[in-house]
Design a protein around this nucleic acid. Structure first.
Lengths: 208, 208
DNA sequence: AAAATAAGTGACTAAAAAGTCATTATTTAG
DNA sequence: CTAAATAATGACTTTTTAGTCACTTATTTT
């Protein structure tokens, strides 16, 4: 092979593939049993790999959890940044926010469990906080940045922060209860009418 | 003592007191470490009791968790049923619902963690579902029953169910994000202005 | 093609938590 | 006061899970 490191030699490719397998398996297992209840053996068995392989790639469950949270948050935030049409008002942004969350969690229910639990773990384990507070704070900041251009009267950061909490909280919370209170298809059609009302009220809140 | 079983002889009283001590300790420990991370030793040590005592009263952690969830839900539902003034509109009921949740979780943060996790465990463990689905479904039904009298046009149960999910979800979700996005006092003052907006939007949803 | 390097493995040890039970302490009945 | 009954105990065994490492397999280098 050529002298320059291509970062694409076979062992490296293989290692990257293995790492991805582990993360995929972990996400699935976390979604099925919950982050705490899932064991390293669960993950490696699901991935079809040896246990030692896990420890070649991650120091412990906490580390892979952090990676998954960061990954999920990055993808969610990426979607939040892509508007199909350029927003012209707070209403547009709010509508977009709810749509994206809706799509993301409906198509990624394992991620929902992961972030739902990750969010709680944050409150509980001070050690994790250092690593995990980042993604969740960044997420709130992302929402804030999208709303900021339309809050012209006064750059009231506290108000925007509250709004971000409300949007994120509403979506997370609604889904969590919708899952027990409703049947599958019903969830899909339930958020839409609520969304309109919610957008209006939040919009009024920003203005007022 | 009299011949009739008074249910108040000393051993019984003692056992009841011990059981309460265990439940109190478990709630505190669950609130601190999370339900999954907490061990039986954590609970009995916190309660100042021997380990064997735990197993005299509960078969395992799942059982005491179910008891705590039922207990918390019963108290929350009790509060939901007590209006300071008789509600005259959907707005009144919604305002009341948000106030009660707000007070309950602000003054019982351990219960917040418990129900937040309990809610998730429900989705994960099919065994728990049988015992735990009850309290959470009952909770949604309670909210529905409070709203029902004011939804006159059409007894649209689906619509009310959605509303109950929205209320419960919004409150749970908002608190969970408020905890990382804000400082202590700020949370207390944040829900109030949002509440008004939220009540309006939900009210419109019910009517519409 | 042999040596060197890197990735993967799973039987193993170590640690932690669950769950048991013979024993002790407390209360009641005779 | 003594025996029977009930509650509590914590050292113990069992089970589960984490984490390690000498070894195998795959790839690259010389």
């Amino acid at each position: 092979m050529n002298g320059i490191d291509t970062l694409q030699n076979k062992p490296q490719k293989r290692a990257i593939k293995t790492r991805l397998k582990l993360m995929e398996a972990a996400l699935a297992v976390f979604g099925e049993y919950g982050v705490d209840a899932a064991t390293i053996d669960d993950i490696t068995q699901r991935a079809g790999l040896g246990k030692g392989t896990f420890y070649r790639h991650f120091s412990d469950k906490r580390e892979i959890t952090t990676c998954l949270v960061e990954d999920a948050m990055t993808r969610l935030m990426g979607m939040l940044g892509k508007f199909s049409i350029k927003p012209k008002s707070v209403d547009d942004v709010l509508e977009h926010l709810l749509n994206v969350h809706y799509d993301f969690f409906l198509n990624n229910s394992d991620e929902f469990v992961l972030l739902f639990q990750g969010r709680l773990l944050l409150k509980l384990e001070r050690k994790i906080s250092q690593d995990m507070e980042g993604p969740f704070s960044g997420y709130l900041e992302k929402i804030e940045s999208l709303l900021e251009p339309f809050v012209t009267v006064k750059v009231d950061i506290v108000r925007i922060r509250r709004l971000a909490c409300a949007v994120a909280g509403f979506v997370f919370g609604f889904f969590s209860f919708a899952m027990i209170g409703m049947e599958g298809d019903d969830i899909e059609t339930s958020l839409k009418p609520l969304r309109q009302s919610f957008v209006k009220s939040l919009s009024a809140f920003v203005a007022g």
